[in-house]
Nucleic acid binder design. Structure first.
Length: 345
DNA sequence: GCGTATGATTTGTA
DNA sequence: TACAAATCATACGC
């Protein structure tokens, strides 16, 4: 097999200035008489050139005759080498590409989201991260988590099915082309190297399709994620009991409605919400109360009365009031109305 | 459908 | 960093 390149690169000038054929002719494969051999080759080339002018049957017969011609292997090798040195070498140089950075990014993202690579609970970690980013309480998001997981799992499944299809199609097409080229290499100057190159071209084409698949999968994950985050933003009213507890605290500490961290934690626990939700609630309440004290007057009076009753009951039973203690608390029963010396002004 | 209530977010400030 | 204020977006009652 290694015989041919050595023969082709040996010295001497052959047909069309190519050394390989000349050597073939001199080493016994091409006959003994130089002029005769040239004539031989000229005839072969002439036959090849005119083969398309003939009828199909004639052409087939001519093709067979040429295939069996004693000069055929040498001519074939020369043509292969010429082809290799011209078109293919240029194309080969052009097609050398560095590893695609975008593809790497897509791969990394798909891996991180749990779409590619080993399944890691359908991306529950990503869902949890998304939930954490949204600052959610976590108590009511289990349904949304499972929804997110289900949808991510769907994306994963589609991705893998499509990927499998592409790989199968790529393998089938590659095999087909390889067989075709091998078959054609009996009559056309197609070297194994060229077949190899063609295979790599096919792989490149298929990997660009694969990249499109990866890109659209990434987009789907992004959309799912943003929808999940949007869902986390959906407002849910606190239950009545939680609102009662928060209002009770607010109006019983009206002189200084700023619960300490400990009080916030206690309130959060009692209301089954997060500390930040307690902070949000107090922030909203303070500003809205301040903006419209008149509107809240009735509510304030009601809670003041309620707190008074609670306190009376507590003192009657020798126990303490129910509202969480706070270092900021002014103590006692504050007036239901804001005064000028209070912090909210 | 509309107005209001309300939880969450954003932005500016001390 | 906590808070005020403004704003957004949705829930809710009519």
């Amino acid at each position: 097999m290694d015989e041919q390149p050595r023969l082709m690169h040996s010295h001497g000038v052959g047909m069309a200035g190519h050394p390989g054929l000349s050597q073939h002719m001199q080493d016994g494969t091409g006959g003994t008489d130089g002029e005769g051999r040239k004539q031989d080759i000229g005839d072969i080339l002439q036959q090849i050139m005119t083969i398309t002018d003939q009828s199909l049957d004639e052409a087939q017969a001519r093709k067979h005759a040429l295939n069996c011609h004693r000069m055929k292997p040498a001519l074939f090798n020369v043509l292969c080498e010429i082809k290799e040195k011209t078109v293919l070498s240029i194309r080969g140089a052009q097609e050398e590409e560095p590893p695609d950075a975008q593809l790497m990014r897509l791969d990394n993202m798909l891996l991180a989201e749990g779409v590619s690579g080993p399944e890691k609970g359908g991306g529950s970690a990503a869902a949890a991260a998304a939930a954490a980013a949204a600052g959610g309480a976590g108590s009511d998001n289990s349904a949304e988590h499972s929804d997110y997981r289900a949808k991510l799992s769907q994306i994963r499944q589609i991705y893998h099915t499509e990927l499998e299809k592409y790989e199968q199609a790529c393998n089938e097409f590659t095999t087909h082309v390889m067989n075709l080229l091998r078959e054609q290499s009996r009559t056309r100057p197609i070297s194994p190297k060229e077949i190899e190159r063609m295979v790599s071209i096919i792989h490149r084409k298929f990997s660009s399709i694969q990249m499109q698949l990866k890109q659209s999968t990434c987009e789907a994950v992004m959309i799912l994620r943003s929808r999940f985050l949007d869902a986390r933003r959906k407002r849910r009213n606190f239950n009545k009991q939680a609102t009662e507890i928060l209002n009770e605290y607010f109006y019983s500490h009206l002189s200084n409605p700023y619960p300490s961290e400990e009080a916030k934690e206690e309130l959060a626990k009692k209301c089954s919400i997060t500390v930040s939700q307690v902070s949000n609630w107090f922030g909203n309440k303070r500003i809205r109360y301040k903006k419209n004290i008149g509107k809240f007057q009735e509510e304030a009076n009601m809670y003041a009365a309620k707190t008074a009753v609670n306190a009376a009951n507590a003192s009657a039973h020798g126990s303490q009031a129910n509202s969480p203690s706070t270092p900021n608390s002014a103590g006692g029963y504050p007036s239901p109305c804001y005064q000028s010396d209070r912090r909210i002004q």
